[in-house]
Write a protein that binds this DNA or RNA. Structure first.
Lengths: 226, 226
DNA sequence: CGGATCGTTGAAGAGTATCAATTTGAGTGG
DNA sequence: CCACTCAAATTGATACTCTTCAACGATCCG
């Protein structure tokens, strides 16, 4: 799905990771957000005819493609889903604001820690993380393009997080060894994610609602694209 | 209006400039967006009980305070306004994505030029800029906190834009001497603002609609706060 | 006129980028 | 199971953008 495309259907992440990103003309890339299971790639289909960013998967992913017309009908029938969608867009905006704060004012170390915290908490909210461990299929180059750093510097920053005994990475998963210290270092305040106290949010509801009422899924296994 | 406040009414900018910002615990500040006439400070009142940022005016400003209940009624009666609100939130998100790209991947010079272009085009869209001139009541410290730079560096960056004959500043207004070169330098693509070809957008409609149906305005002159 | 805020300048240093090479690790096919 | 390949991670050296600090000048306003 690319910058400038028209929107004829909405894509829901069922499994795997993806990201939104933009390219500058000379090739510089900036990732503007991650999509985890339960997220919609493009909740803008109702207002904007074109999207102004691209989406790429970071690993093989499972998605549901919901035709625009079908989604409109679903939203009419199940207003809770409409509300969840609206909520979700606002949460996305809050996350985006925090990214601006991170890239603008946090140091490389704080910024990297903050992104790890964000992803862990979002995955936890949809039941995909526990015991301080979660999938982490994001390359150092992707992190660099998310954090406004170079890949080399991300590498050294991750080394520092490891040497401080805050995280370990194995295969494509990550463990927070001392979540509290990590959040302190990151200046991380969970509240901006607007989740309930128990760590759940309405996306979870959206996912489970979806399971009962969803249109047929199209299955797509996709290699990482750029 | 501060981080954590409950939302009992929505504030509409009628005149003047304001910004959204967040503080880190140690005092570092990051501005996450500007509010110009026609913008709502907090279009989140419908879903989120708390806001996760603060708002400050940058100059004496005129605002309309719309009680939550009244706005709900207005939106029921005039669905076009509801649509404009929804649209507006999506445009805000697009702007935020572009800020992430700017701070993450544009150089200081490009980034500064890009913010100038954004503000000019947004002001033009609500009829507050023409002939490449607009109000610009933003201090270098504010620019620094918007662009993720130090005030000193913003100063030198503005000097460079002036020495390249791209802008001039007088009093509190700014003139783009060579808008095309400025946009090229900034890698600025107008499309992300999702405005119509003529430079107008639905916020303008929102403003004029409001004039006919608005609740009584409360007038508030406010000194810059932090 | 005095005080505050904002803008400007210079010098020195920190943080991060860049470049280039090397190592590691995960497939893949023989 | 091993050799091969390719992408990702790591390392070192060097350069540069931007920050910090401190001082000074300009402007505004009561």
């Amino acid at each position: 799905m690319f910058d400038g495309d028209s929107l004829e259907s909405v894509i829901l992440m069922l499994d795997g990771f993806a990201c939104r990103y933009k390219h500058l003309d000379d090739g510089r890339r900036q990732i503007t957000g991650y999509l985890v299971p339960g997220d919609l790639c493009d909740p803008y289909v109702f207002m904007l005819r074109k999207i102004d960013y691209s989406v790429a998967t970071l690993c093989p992913a499972l998605i549901a493609k919901v035709p625009r017309s079908k989604l409109v009908k679903i939203l009419d029938e199940y207003p809770r889903i409409a509300r969840a969608l609206w909520w979700s867009a606002l949460v996305d905006e809050g996350i985006l604001r925090e990214w601006v704060v991170s890239i603008g004012r946090r140091t490389a170390l704080e910024r990297t820690a903050h992104l790890i915290c964000e992803l862990y908490h979002r995955l936890q909210a949809v039941g995909l993380a526990r015991n301080n461990r979660c999938e982490f299929p994001i390359t150092q180059q992707d992190l660099a393009d998310s954090l406004g750093l170079s890949a080399v510097h991300v590498n050294r920053t991750l080394q520092e997080l490891r040497s401080k005994k805050l995280i370990v990475q194995r295969n494509h998963s990550l463990v927070m060894l001392d979540p509290e210290k990590l959040r302190d270092l990151a200046l991380f305040k969970q509240s901006y994610l607007h989740m309930a106290e128990d760590g759940n949010n309405s996306r979870h509801e959206f996912m489970t609602s979806r399971a009962k009422h969803a249109p047929p899924l199209s299955r797509m296994i996709d290699q990482k694209g750029g």
